[in-house]
Simulated assay, not measured.
Amino acid sequence: MRIRPGQVAVVTGAANGIGRALVARLVAAGVKVVMADVEEACLRVAEVELQFFGGDVLAVPTDVTDLSEVERLLDRAIAHYGRVDLVINNAGVIGPKRPVWELEASDWRRTMGVNLDGVFNVIKVFVPELITRGRGHITNVSSVLGQSAVALMGDYSASKHAVVGLTESLRAELATRAPKVGVMLVCPGPVRTRLLEGENSLINVALSAEDVANQIVDAVDAGAERLVPNRFAVAV
């Protein structure tokens, strides 16, 4: 899908980090953006800042783990802008760093709820809208830990591995059902966001949220199917 002024994007996890940077990059390209995040206060601040500089954005507080809230997100997007062209599944969390057997069941459910169930909920609600329109694009943000694994992040890695499989299945399904609906998988390495707090050893190889956002938008515009933004940085 080529990124063009006047298109409408929905970005989850939009109040901070990569999501916030994605909204800024899309707004700079003339795209109208529906911003979704569970952190309402931060979301409202971001909305006001972007509108002050001329961005056409709409903040919709949303818990992606709740299917009814994701359905409301679509309703608000259609009511306000009349269409959706691009969906970026970016919301994510990292749980406490513990051996798998020491994780609390509540920690496991929270990580899976946001990182996997949230992606599923957005796909379930928004992909039928894109199919009906006959075109559009959905991007799912996984992680390099969706392609490998490290100690003390079993819940996070498992959730991100699942997003990789879910995305590849979605692409195969849409290839025959709606070939003009694109699907892209993004697997960032370390990124300088709140999720990297305390990881001093990774700071020197981490990209900025703005770097990653720029690469994602450029890759969507180029029709890429998979993006690993830190491919070179992580190897240093």
Rank of each mutant, 00 (worst) to 15 (best):
V122E: 07
Y81F: 15
G54Q: 11
L152F: 15
D66I: 15
V84R: 09
E129C: 14
P99R: 06
R133L: 09
V60G: 01
S142D: 04
V119T: 14
V125R: 00
I123N: 11
I88Q: 06
L50G: 01
N121W: 07
S68F: 09
V114C: 13
V57A: 02
P96H: 04
S68Q: 06
R72K: 13
P99M: 11
L73W: 07
E104L: 15
P96N: 09
V93K: 04
Y81R: 04
G146A: 06
D66A: 10
V60Q: 03
A77E: 10
P96K: 00
A77I: 12
A79V: 02
Q51T: 09
V60Y: 00
A91L: 00
P61C: 06
L58S: 11
D63R: 13
L67V: 14
K97R: 06
L152W: 15
L145W: 11
E69R: 14
H137V: 03
P61A: 10
R83C: 03
L74P: 01
D107S: 15
D75V: 10
R76E: 15
G92E: 06
V119C: 06
L50P: 00
V48L: 05
F52R: 14
A105P: 00
L58I: 01
E69G: 03
E69A: 15
K97W: 13
I94G: 03
R76N: 04
I131T: 05
W101Y: 14
F52E: 15
P61R: 10
N140D: 03
T62Y: 12
L73A: 03
A105F: 08
V87I: 15
S106F: 04
T132M: 05
S148N: 13
G82Q: 10
H80Q: 14
D107P: 11
T111A: 07
A79Y: 03
V93M: 08
Q147A: 12
L74S: 05
L67R: 09
V141T: 09
A105I: 12
F120I: 14
D63A: 13
V114A: 13
N121G: 12
